[in-house]
């Protein structure tokens, strides 16, 4: 379960396909595929021929969700090897997107955050974007000291992968950065950082 009650954290309300949209753009990572297949079960297949799916398997590659998504026969299914080309392709899609296009994002929180950043650059109101958190609760964290971002943080404390300071992961989230805030945990007495504890499995 995600920690509740962080005021700065976006609420991931779940995908809810809007039947009247002219075009559906799904940006999906790993376990997020199940959020889409659940929608097909709930809403039927009508929207699929107006749908484009950009998919990144990520840590869920062994589960072969790409097979299940291809079997849906959407208008476009495209699979990215890593996040960077996925975001590149997403920009191309958004450049060409017309009125009436809906954006849906499902996957881990770090993934949602980074896709959301691109969408915000294109001036899409974040309230209009459907998001669903699936898979790991690992956090993407920005070190407040060196500003470096570390992906897939599962423990608190953890060592910043850029400057090496041991960081406490605060329950404070920036949509603009798509990241939680990490603050040096033993600043007052360097060397006294507690051992990392897995709290975001």
């Amino acid at each position: 379960m995600l920690v509740q009650g962080i005021k700065s954290r976006p609420e991931y309300k779940g995908l809810n396909v809007e039947p009247h949209a002219k075009r559906h753009l799904f940006v999906i990572e790993g376990e997020g595929a199940a959020a889409l297949t659940d929608q097909v079960e709930a809403k039927g297949r009508d929207f699929l021929d107006r749908s484009e799916i950009l998919y990144l398997a990520g840590g869920a590659a062994p589960k072969a969700y790409d097979v299940a998504l291809t079997a849906l026969s959407p208008d476009v299914f495209w699979q990215a090897p890593t996040l960077q080309p996925l975001l590149f392709r997403l920009r191309a899609c958004l450049e060409q997107a017309r009125m009436g296009t809906r954006l849906y994002i499902a996957g881990t929180e770090g993934f949602i955050g980074q896709v959301m950043q691109v969408a915000l650059e294109f001036g899409i109101d974040f309230n209009s974007i459907h998001t669903e958190h699936r898979g790991s609760t690992a956090r993407r964290v920005q070190c407040v000291h060196c500003k470096g971002i570390t992906d897939n943080v599962t423990t608190s404390s953890f060592a910043c992968t850029h400057c090496g300071l041991p960081l406490l992961v605060r329950d404070h989230y920036s949509r603009r950065l798509g990241a939680f805030q990490g603050v040096n945990i033993d600043a007052e007495e360097p060397g006294t950082a507690p051992a990392p504890e897995e709290i975001f499995p």
């Binding site: 329950d171 989230y173 920036s174 949509r175 603009r176």
Partner: peptide, 17 residues
């Protein structure tokens, strides 16, 4: 508190902590 982290946030968000 960090302006660089909080810039762009709304009232409830920047007071989150």
């Amino acid at each position: 508190w960090s302006l660089d982290f909080d810039i762009g946030m709304n009232f409830m968000e920047w007071h989150g902590p």
